[in-house]
Every structure is written in structure tokens, then in C-alpha cells.
């Protein structure tokens, strides 16, 4: 992975959405699989990859369906009837 892009995408992990975390994880894995990296750089990538995988896991665990309702030009939260 080129250094500049690592730096560019290096947002705080707990702020990443699932898609962002997954995309970066995929990028890191293929970088580790295909490119020759400095050992130190590789270890950093590995650690970030681990953290990203954990972030994805947390987001999947915590995911809750968000339901909104169109009301004219607005969107309001939708209250489901309880059974």
C-alpha cells in the first residue's frame, strides 16, 4: 500500500462506518498478500487490520434496523406497532 493513501485513510477506527472499515481491511489484506513491505510497516498494517476487523465485528453485533418514514418532504422516525 503506498504510504500516502495509508495516511489519507487513517481515520480514527471508532469513527469508521462498516463499509469504510471493511474496504480498508480488504485493502490492507491485499497489500500484505501481494506487496513487499518493510517489516515494521507490515506489523503496523497488521495491527491496523486487526483493529479494523474488530470494528467490523462490533458494528455487525450492534447493528439495529433503522426505520424512517416519508412525511411530505421530511423523514421522521417510524414507530412500529408493538405486537
Amino acid at each position: 500500500m503506498p504510504k500516502s493513501s495509508t495516511q489519507k485513510t487513517e481515520k480514527a477506527i471508532e469513527e469508521l462506518s462498516y463499509e469504510e472499515a471493511l474496504a480498508e481491511l480488504e485493502e490492507i489484506v491485499s497489500a500484505l498478500e501481494s506487496e513487499q513491505n518493510q517489516l515494521e510497516e507490515s506489523i503496523k498494517l497488521f495491527e491496523r487490520g486487526q483493529a479494523l476487523a474488530a470494528r467490523c465485528g462490533v458494528l455487525l453485533e450492534a447493528a439495529q434496523l433503522k426505520v424512517k418514514q416519508v412525511a411530505g418532504d421530511d423523514v421522521l422516525p417510524f414507530e412500529e406497532e408493538s405486537e
Partner: peptide
């Protein structure tokens, strides 16, 4: 995710 995680491990170990 868990597949990527195991690829992450093995890629690093290989390296």
C-alpha cells in the same frame, strides 16, 4: 470479516 481476518494473519505470518 473473519475470512479477511484469517487472511490478515496468514499474510503477516508468511511475511
Amino acid at each position: 470479516v473473519s475470512n479477511l481476518q484469517s487472511r490478515l494473519f496468514s499474510a503477516t505470518l508468511n511475511l
